[in-house]
């Protein structure tokens, strides 16, 4: 989808912007935030994906100069780790529903502090670096899902307790499926993992 999009970067950027605004409409927010599963496993990933697509629409040379300005791959990865973990806190989830500023922070940070910097960093990450990002993500998802399943209390005041358990199961299942998919790409792609690094890729990380 991304490859076809980038034939018309201007039009794609416009479509992406419209989609971003659509997600921010009260109707979309109400529906996507009505259940914990949709909030965590649909809305938040979509916001990250918006950041990913936005970064891919940026010309390669600009991406490189941005990456240098940000100090290379690792600051970007670290920012993404912090921002993505923050929105996994039950308290942050509740805050997004009750505090408009938290909602704004969520809509800004997930695309621009998670998706966007990850794409910038990705080309410069070695296989080990990518493996770190992936496995960290899988384990975070699995552990949090498991916590949601076994938690004796309702962790979010805004969500029903069985919604929490469902979200937990979806997270565990998603992490297992994603893990096997990633493992599969490692085996099939001759050990380079999904989305092979380009020529300037492995071995030339900035950090």
């Amino acid at each position: 989808m991304i490859a076809t999009l980038s034939h018309h970067p201007g039009r794609s950027a416009l479509a992406l912007g419209v989609f971003y605004l659509l997600l921010a409409t009260p109707i979309a927010r109400d529906w996507l935030e009505a259940s914990m599963s949709r909030h965590m496993l649909v809305q938040m990933p979509l916001l990250v994906v918006i950041g990913i697509i936005a970064a891919r629409l940026v010309p390669g040379r600009t991406q490189d100069s941005l990456l240098i300005r940000f100090g290379g791959a690792w600051p970007c990865v670290i920012a993404a780790l912090f921002a993505s973990s923050y929105w996994m806190l039950p308290r942050a989830l509740d805050a997004a529903l009750t505090d408009p500023w938290a909602e704004v922070a969520k809509f800004l940070s997930l695309p621009f502090l998670v998706g966007f910097p990850l794409v910038l960093a990705w080309r410069r990450l070695t296989l080990i670096g990518r493996g770190f990002v992936w496995t960290n993500f899988f384990s975070m998802l699995a552990v949090l899902g498991w916590l949601y399943i076994v938690a004796p209390v309702r962790v979010c005041n805004s969500y029903l307790v069985n919604d929490q358990e469902n979200a937990g199961w979806y997270m565990v299942i998603a992490s297992v499926l994603l893990f096997f998919w990633w493992l599969g790409t490692l085996l099939v792609g001759g050990g380079v993992g999904p989305d092979k690094p380009d020529q300037s890729g492995p071995g030339r990380t900035f950090a």
Binding site: A73, A79, F82, A83, Y86, R91, A95, A207
Partner: peptide
């Protein structure tokens, strides 16, 4: 890179500290 990484790490830690009342309150309750 090291410098900015350290900066981002401390900023991120601060946000977590601030957002959880000093790592004590992880839920709204």
């Amino acid at each position: 890179s090291v410098l900015i990484s350290a900066l981002v790490t401390s900023l991120g830690t601060w946000v977590f500290w601030w957002g959880t009342d000093g790592f004590t309150a992880f839920t709204a309750e």
